[in-house]
Amino acid sequence: MTTAPTPVPTTPAATSPGGGAGASATATTTSPTTTAPGPRRRPLARLGGASWLAAVPLLLFFLIGFGLPAVAIVIGAFTTSSDAESGAGQFTFDNLTASVQGGYQTAMLSSLKLSALTALLATVLGLPLAQAVVTSRRGWLRQAVLTASGVLANFGGLPLAFAFVATLGNAGEITKLLHLTDHGWSLYSFTGLTVVYLYFLVPLMVLTITPALDGLRTQWREAAQNNRATTVQYWLHVALPILLPSLLGGFVLLFGSAFAAYATAAAMVGATVPLVSRSIADALSGNVLVGQGNLALALSLNMIFVAVLVMAVYLPLQRRSARWLS
């Protein structure tokens, strides 16, 4: 009678590393440390930040179109004109000194006054118009107003001057229909030029302030209503303080746009209203004095200085409004 051999139990240590039981036991007792895979690098990041190469054409265009003329203006403003009688090309402060005296000073102050007044009026008129567009329940009305504003904001120059001369000039249709001349109206004056500038500044203000009005949250109005605040109180204590940076930024933007405008005023009022842009054209063409070419560059440098101040005020206001309305 034979007896069957007694089977010997196997332990994890006795099994081979490649065996199923031993492998599973080992896997349960020891858990290897695993690391999460890192984020995959983008192709442009592996190139060492080569994405800036896409901006090279824009930088070259800016350098050629704006940088070189700016350098030429700065150099010419501090040197004597090449068509002067003697001492051409010499360093001088006479151009800058003359650009802030006499008639040139009057032209600069008139341009600043016209720009500030039209920008203020356009801000006051554009805000309620933009608010009416934002709160309108008709989507087609919003799109129509914003599209028309985009067109009118860029409508200027000779076509705009002709349109106003044909309608509000001395022999214009509306002037004759309403007998505006008998009431002292004149398109070719400071007041008339102000009305013309508002034609493209008000639509520009609508485009500028509409995103800020969209950023006003409904919860803020509801919270004011829950605290029994009237509509006037809501605007005075909630909406306007929040919109103030955007409003000031829009005002500065409109000021710069009106300050740089030239073709409309030159075609409509000529020398009737003194403007610095018109003074630059007269100095370049020699209509007043011969040999004043670099004086025109000094006047242009003054305008660049004003534009730099405008941008220095506009950019911080824009960042602050974006922080509130984001």
Rank of each mutant, 00 (worst) to 15 (best):
M1F: 10
P7D: 10
P9G: 12
A27P: 07
A27E: 12
T28L: 15
T33S: 10
T34A: 15
P39N: 15
R41C: 11
R46T: 09
G49T: 01
L53T: 06
A55P: 03
P57M: 14
L59G: 15
L63V: 11
G65E: 05
F66K: 06
F66G: 06
G76H: 01
T79R: 15
T80F: 06
G87R: 09
G89N: 07
L96D: 06
T97N: 12
G103M: 07
S115D: 09
L117G: 02
V124L: 15
L125A: 09
G126L: 11
L129A: 15
V134I: 14
V134M: 14
S136E: 03
A144D: 04
T147G: 09
S149K: 04
G156C: 02
A161C: 04
L168S: 09
I174S: 10
T181E: 12
W185L: 11
Y188E: 04
L207V: 11
L216A: 13
T218K: 11
T218H: 10
Q219F: 00
V232G: 12
I242M: 07
S246N: 10
L247M: 07
F255C: 01
A263K: 01
G270Q: 12
G270M: 07
A271E: 11
V273K: 02
V276K: 04
S277M: 05
R278C: 07
I280P: 00
L284N: 09
L289G: 05
N302E: 09
A307W: 01
V313N: 03
P316W: 06
Q318A: 13
